[in-house]
């Protein structure tokens, strides 16, 4: 498995390109967010920031970015919890209990995962209007749970399916009910799968824009993406503040990615290919 010289050049060239291409635009944003206001609009732009934190101060203390972050955390956290609560038993039943219609349900879920948001947005909006769910966090969490369920169920079903059957059978012989088997035997084994599903659900809810734009019109309830998209004032284009807000919105996700890169890669491909 030794590489020739050419292969080495190719490999490291590719690595450099991929990493550089992925990171450069974001690093530019970071650099912009750390500049003083006069340098943001310098022409030509400057490469290096002067380390000013004025934009961070502005977005945190004058633009209620902190509120947006809390809102996003509430919405994404609740979505993740609820989605897993609903998805786990369903995935287990679909993977193991051989119910009639399992195949159709799994196929249907894949189709549902592909629904364009706009086709369900109008009716969901009217439904929430009747239930008084507009401008509330739960009004956003419910559709998010529905939208993330298909992927969560697929990831978990795939995972359950790969677990050895012997343990369950042993549990069954010992007189465990199905629920007990899931709770005490399967769930501890499925932690990595749960974990992957949780991360992907969380990232989805943290990043979603379309529904958040329609359902949360009160700025006090905005999530980060809506806050950032509507950041522009009537008469000013605050690029520095936008950059700082964007960096703050993205940092938690980058931390998640750095920590759990392996689980994410496994989980994403589980939903799609491994089957």
């Amino acid at each position: 498995m030794t590489r020739t010289r050419g292969e080495h050049v190719l490999l490291w060239g590719g690595i450099l390109l991929a990493v550089g291409g992925s990171l450069f635009p974001f690093l530019w944003l970071v650099s912009t967010s750390l500049k003083s206001p006069i340098y943001v609009e310098a022409i030509p732009p400057t490469w290096w920031p002067d380390g000013s934190l004025v934009f961070y101060r502005n977005v945190l203390f004058e633009h209620r970015l902190f509120d947006y972050m809390i809102n996003s955390a509430i919405v994404a956290g609740s979505t993740t919890g609820l989605a897993l609560l609903v998805a786990t038993p369903a995935a287990y039943a679909l993977a193991r209990l051989r119910l009639p219609g399992t195949a159709w349900i799994l196929r249907g879920l894949l189709c549902v995962a592909m629904f364009p948001q706009i086709v369900i947005a109008g009716p969901v909006w009217r439904m929430l209007e009747r239930l008084g769910g507009l401008n509330t966090h739960w009004g956003l969490v419910l559709p998010y749970v529905a939208l993330t369920l298909p992927l969560a169920v697929w990831i978990l079903a795939t995972f359950f399916n790969d677990l050895p059957r012997e343990l369950e059978e042993a549990a069954s012989i010992d007189g465990c009910t199905t629920g007990q088997t899931l709770m005490y035997v399967m769930l501890p084994l499925a932690v990595p799968g749960l974990f992957t599903a949780a991360i992907l659900t969380f990232i989805y809810a943290w990043n979603e824009f379309f529904f958040a734009l329609l359902i949360l019109t009160d700025p006090a309830k905005h999530t980060l993406p809506v806050g950032i998209a509507l950041f522009q004032g009537e008469f000013t284009m605050p690029w520095g503040e936008i950059a700082a807000a964007s960096v703050l919105a993205t940092l938690p996700l980058i931390v998640v990615v750095l920590l759990f890169q392996r689980g994410i890669i496994g989980g994403l491909s589980a939903g799609a290919i491994k089957g």
Binding site: I70, A73, I74, G77, S78, G81, P192, F195, L259, G263
Partner: peptide, 22 residues
């Protein structure tokens, strides 16, 4: 999986506190 689980627990825990206190 100890690390990830701990991190997740902290994450969920802080969410819950946020919701409860807010």
């Amino acid at each position: 999986f100890l690390m990830p689980i701990a991190a997740l627990a902290i994450l969920v825990g802080s969410m819950v506190t946020l919701v409860l206190f807010k």
